[in-house]
């Protein structure tokens, strides 16, 4: 039951973009077309899940027992860039078609703060009692929430392209304001678990 609540909350209530403000750069950068938004979303789901499982394992068995938690940031970012590199090579060989679709987004993911953000959140002191099930649900939830928002927003943006917007608001300004309105709508979900 708790896992279901955690899942819902990480997708909708603690939404990575609208309430935690992580991954904004890629969100603004890649959401111009819905197809690329989905591509980026899928790549992010995969990388977040893999890298947070890896970093959680490293933390549990190496860093924490040896009092090395101050090495977290360095170790995590190396793991993440390693995972991204590996995913890139693997997909290139195994599924050239998917690679063609995701290829250009993969290198961008290393510096997507949502990835490091999730890796750091699952080991944060307030989540001390989390085990693998919670980590999996939370990582999936956050990355699905990311994909959901970036896709929904890309469809809006495709429409914005054709609308009559004051010159000064064209491009990024209207994108942020639209996101703000979307964030207001999403605050309503907070009541779900009340």
């Amino acid at each position: 039951m708790n896992l279901i609540i955690l899942g819902i909350s990480s997708i909708l209530i603690q939404n990575v973009i609208l309430s935690q403000f992580l991954g904004i750069c890629s969100y603004i950068g890649v959401s111009k077309k819905s197809q690329s938004a989905i591509g980026m979303g899928l790549a992010v789901i995969f990388v977040i899940l893999t890298s947070s499982l890896l970093t959680f394992t490293i933390d549990k068995f190496i860093l924490y027992p040896n009092d090395l938690i101050y090495m977290r940031t360095i170790v995590y970012i190396l793991v993440i860039s390693g995972v991204v590199q590996f995913v890139e090579m693997f997909i290139k060989k195994a599924a050239p078609l998917i690679y063609k679709m995701l290829g250009i987004y993969l290198p961008l993911i290393t510096t997507n703060c949502a990835v490091l953000g999730v890796a750091l959140t699952v080991v944060a002191p307030e989540n001390k009692n989390w085990g693998y099930p919670e980590v999996i649900v939370y990582s999936l939830g956050i990355s699905i929430g990311y994909t959901l928002i970036i896709y929904v927003f890309s469809t809006m943006r495709e429409r914005l392209e054709n609308s009559d917007i004051p010159e000064a608001f064209k491009g990024t300004p209207i994108a942020f304001i639209t996101t703000g309105i979307m964030a207001i709508a999403f605050m309503g979900f907070a009541g779900l678990l009340g």
Partner: peptide, 9 residues
């Protein structure tokens, strides 16, 4: 640690 608070903190 209050369960289900807004940011879980």
């Amino acid at each position: 640690l209050a369960p289900g608070s807004y940011n879980g903190k």
